[in-house]
Amino acid sequence: MPKRSTSIVYIDTFLMPKAFSGHHYWYLSIIDSFKFTNLESPHTSLSSPLLLYTNDNAYHGFGAVLSLDELETLNKSLGFISACADKPFKLATTYCPEFLSLKASTGLWPASNYGKDIIIGIIDSAIWPEHPSFEDHGRPAGKVSSKWKGKCEGGQQFNSSMCNSKLIGVRYFNAALKRKFRSSIVDSARDTTGHGTYVSSVVAGNFLTWASFDGYAEGTTKGVAPYARISMYKVVWDGGIRCYVVAGMDQAIADGVDVIALPWDTSKQQKSYHWNLS
């Protein structure tokens, strides 16, 4: 039985056959064609090809569970541009406002009203909604922009009612992992590493006037954009997988966020494999 793994596939959508009413159905037919040509017994959770996510905003293409042979076949298919292996990445943390030379009394920071009503899509390890940095009391009143199409996805240890006018949306992406590790993952946007919660507080945490470190260094903490709204996209599962990152970015764009925060360093990551038509 061929070994399969997750890959990110880029497609030239202008070459979609007229028989299909949308890109998703075209991609689905491509994956289904592999199922009919590889009739194996499902002995493992990744025994058959699987379409995970269709992407039409961050890029055109899809994430899928495929074997090397299936990728080689795909390389000869209509519209194929390239594919790369889905690899874990190393999380890093964003710097504080000093890195951006922001000043509290003059300049861009106060001129922007500290990000009032800007929607920031954070692509990370999810969030603890109970954290006081994400409470909505004291923030400037105002309705969420009419362009906002996101939602608060409920799940394990995370009710949709936990969102508010500060944390306006959460989504999580784990299609392949659910298939492989059904009982060992928290199936929701609950943060299990703390990284996404911390980064969210740095990016857009609300004002906290009673903060201290075990009683020392008391003072007020705040994020770079304390009046901004947050929408969290959980893509990090046990180290993180890029397929989910792309899916999260694509959904964030579709939801209508104004800014996307990607707080990690990919400069030293291993190169992915690629297939190109040339």
Rank of each mutant, 00 (worst) to 15 (best):
K3L: 14
S5V: 07
T6L: 06
V9S: 04
I11S: 06
D12W: 06
M16L: 13
F20T: 10
G22K: 11
H23R: 05
Y25M: 10
L28F: 09
L28R: 13
S29I: 04
I30T: 06
N38W: 05
N38G: 09
E40Q: 15
E40D: 12
E40N: 14
E40I: 13
S41P: 11
T44L: 11
L46A: 02
S47V: 01
S47M: 07
S47Q: 11
S48D: 11
Y53D: 04
Y53W: 13
Y59P: 02
F62D: 01
A64S: 14
L68Y: 10
L68K: 14
D69F: 11
D69A: 15
E70T: 12
L71N: 04
L71C: 07
N75R: 13
N75F: 11
I81C: 12
S82T: 15
A85D: 14
A85V: 10
K87P: 03
F89H: 07
K90A: 11
K90G: 04
A92G: 13
T94R: 03
T94H: 11
P97D: 00
P97E: 03
E98L: 13
L100N: 01
L100Q: 09
A104H: 14
G107N: 11
G107E: 08
P110Q: 06
G115A: 14
G115L: 05
I119F: 03
I119H: 01
G121P: 03
I123G: 00
I127L: 06
I127F: 12
W128H: 08
E130Y: 07
H131C: 07
S133V: 01
F134I: 00
E135C: 00
D136L: 09
D136N: 12
D136H: 13
D136I: 08
D136A: 09
V144G: 02
W148M: 07
W148E: 03
W148Y: 15
G150L: 02
C152R: 01
E153F: 05
G155A: 04
G155R: 02
F158K: 00
N159L: 08
M162Y: 11
C163R: 02
Y172C: 01
Y172A: 02
F173C: 04
L177R: 10
R179I: 07
R179M: 06
K180N: 07
S184P: 04
I185S: 04
S188A: 09
T193C: 10
T197C: 09
V202N: 01
V202K: 08
V203N: 00
A204K: 01
F207C: 05
F207N: 08
F207H: 08
A211G: 09
S212I: 06
F213H: 12
F213G: 10
A217N: 15
K222V: 05
G223Q: 02
G223V: 12
V224C: 05
P226H: 02
A228E: 00
I230V: 15
Y233A: 04
V235Q: 01
D238K: 02
G239C: 05
R242T: 09
R242A: 06
C243V: 05
C243P: 01
Y244H: 10
V246Y: 05
G248K: 13
G248H: 07
G248Q: 08
G248I: 08
M249N: 03
M249H: 04
Q251F: 09
D255K: 12
I260V: 14
I260T: 08
L262R: 02
L262K: 02
P263Q: 06
P263V: 02
P263A: 08
W264Y: 15
T266M: 10
K268H: 14
K268I: 03
N276K: 14
N276T: 15
L277T: 15
S278V: 10
S278I: 09
S278K: 15
